[in-house]
Amino acid sequence: MKNAIEVKNLTKHYKTFSMESVSFSIPEGLVCGFIGQNGAGKTTTLRLILGMAHREGGEIAVLGRDAGDVSVKDDLGVLFEIPYFQDNWTPTDVEKALRPFYSRWDAAAYDRYLTLFSLDRRQKFKTLSRGMKMKLGIACALSHDAKLLLLDEPTSGLDPVVRDEILDLLREYVSQEGRTVFFSTHITSDLEKIADHITYIHRGKIEYCGGRDELIERYCAVRGGRDDLKKISRGRILGLREHIGGFEGMMSVNDLSGLPSGVITEPVNLEDIMVFIGRQEANA
């Protein structure tokens, strides 16, 4: 399988945050979720991929080309938490502004998306609701035959109905051959609906990069009484929390053998994994 994005030994230092030798790859043809807590390095990684920030070391290849090659951006659809358009632009102005830059801009597709999203061509950007602004951004990202969508928290702050509409669009987009979505979010429930692949970044380090189901199947939640906890090595439990009734935490499925009979194990979801690993760091 070809990779849409390949990041090798990416390094970037800020005063309060560092990314040291980050490496991961995103396979082509999938919806790939990029998860992590706020400040984990998701947006920084996307900014480095897009050349908005300068990397201090490492290599980034996008669609088989060096990320610094501007022709790559003809094949990218990019959307941040809010689309960056001039406040007074109307959807018509947005089209006039962007169309000249893309070799495969499809005016009919743009028109179709505006109709689908009930966007008025004459309405100024500043008067649109947040959901409508995001839809306009998505219309632009999808109207130039992009091979890769880079989305940074696109559903953050949107109501469930709009979020669901956006996820449907992404599902439809990726169903066409050779299309990839790289989707940063901390709303893990969105990824459970559509993501095939997960990259998990924590404090500037990649903790996991692989199939979503493999990640979820790697761990399970455990809970039990105080007496049970005495019989388990605490180091095996991630994000251990003790309370009056007993304890709860997360364990690798490889460590489950020999658990006391009173301990209950349950499947985890992406949010549980993020919470328990985050708590593990805090406990340490």
């Binding site: 897009l50 501007v70 951006k73 689309p83 960056y84 358009f85 001039q86």
Partner: peptide, 14 residues
């Protein structure tokens, strides 16, 4: 004001 610098850097321009 409109963070257009970020928009420009998503376009295929140097």
């Amino acid at each position: 004001r409109n963070s257009l610098g970020k928009l420009y850097l998503t376009l295929p321009v140097r």
